[in-house]
């Protein structure tokens, strides 16, 4: 198939940037979206033009490094990662608009590459169980009901790609933050510091400049790992409970 690509080009963080149009020809429907961009880049290189920069790594939908806002949706038309999106989802002759994820907390680095370091800083603020290596109890000394373990797992599958932020009209990171808070609040190992964790992670999320939640549900609808909105409710619960019961005045 032949396609027209409208791609956001931006030399660096301080450049203003703008769209440029490119044509690609003879694209196979079996290609992944990123492989289609590989083809474009090979052509650009041959023409002596700077290739389009984009983030990607595992190309199997798990590392969370690929991003891209494709035709008005994070990771494109399917609820999956861009690397798992195949060209059979597009039509011959189509114009595809490709933008970087947009959020104040995700500044553009170059072209379609954005800086998602804010997510790391949020995890650093409390997304862990305080336990040192060694000196832990036998794994089976902490029985966890299967349903709880499964629910925690559902939250733990977050790949930190940032599609939730990109999809949210407020560029809110609540789904990401709540997934981690939920996972650890559900599990007995994480319950010990659940209150502190909720307070610290929410504070860091706010400090990074993410928006608030309007409960539109766009985040969950676009999440490649189908993280549920109930996580956000749980985070709210955790946070309000923490606010009124901890001794942090």
């Amino acid at each position: 198939m032949n396609l027209t690509l409208k791609v956001w080009r931006q030399k660096n963080a301080s450049d203003k940037g703008g769209f440029r149009e490119y044509k690609v020809k003879d694209i196979s429907e079996h290609m992944s979206f990123l492989e289609m961009l590989d083809v474009l880049n090979e052509e650009l290189l041959e023409k002596g033009e700077d290739p389009v920069h984009f983030d990607h790594d595992c190309r199997e939908g798990i590392c969370g490094m690929c991003s891209l806002h494709i035709n008005g949706k994070p990771h494109g038309p399917l609820q999956t990662t861009t690397c798992q999106l195949h060209m059979r989802s597009f039509n011959d002759g189509e114009t595809i608009t490709i933008e970087p994820f947009r959020a104040k907390a995700f500044p553009v680095v170059k072209d379609l590459v954005v800086d998602r370091g804010a997510f790391d800083r949020i995890i650093q603020s409390g997304g862990y169980v305080t336990v040192n290596t060694g000196g832990v109890p036998d794994a089976n000394e902490i029985p966890i009901p299967k349903v709880i373990a499964d629910e925690a797992f559902d939250s733990a599958t977050c790949i930190g790609c940032g599609a939730c932020v990109a999809a949210c009209k407020n560029a809110s990171a609540m789904l990401f933050v709540s997934a981690k808070i939920s996972q650890l609040a559900l599990l007995p190992q994480g319950k010990v510091e659940r209150k502190e964790r909720a307070e610290k992670m929410v504070a860091q999320m706010d400090a990074e400049g993410f928006g608030a939640c309007t409960n539109t549900g766009a985040c969950s609808a676009e999440c490649p790992k189908e993280i549920k909105l109930s996580n956000i409710a749980r985070m709210n619960r955790e946070y309000f409970t923490a606010s009124v019961t901890t001794e942090n005045v």
């Binding site: 862990y128 169980v129 336990v131 290596t133 060694g134 832990v136 109890p137 036998d138 794994a139 089976n140 902490i142 029985p143 966890i144 009901p145 299967k146 373990a149 499964d150 925690a152 797992f153 733990a156 996972q183 650890l184 599990l187 190992q189 994480g190």
Partner: peptide, 21 residues
């Protein structure tokens, strides 16, 4: 030890209905 360590960190390994791994 690795399994113990990971469980303590909150890694959600698959479990049986009785709650054990």
């Amino acid at each position: 030890n690795i399994i113990d360590q990971c469980v303590a960190q909150g890694v959600p390994f698959a479990r049986e209905y009785g709650g054990l791994l």
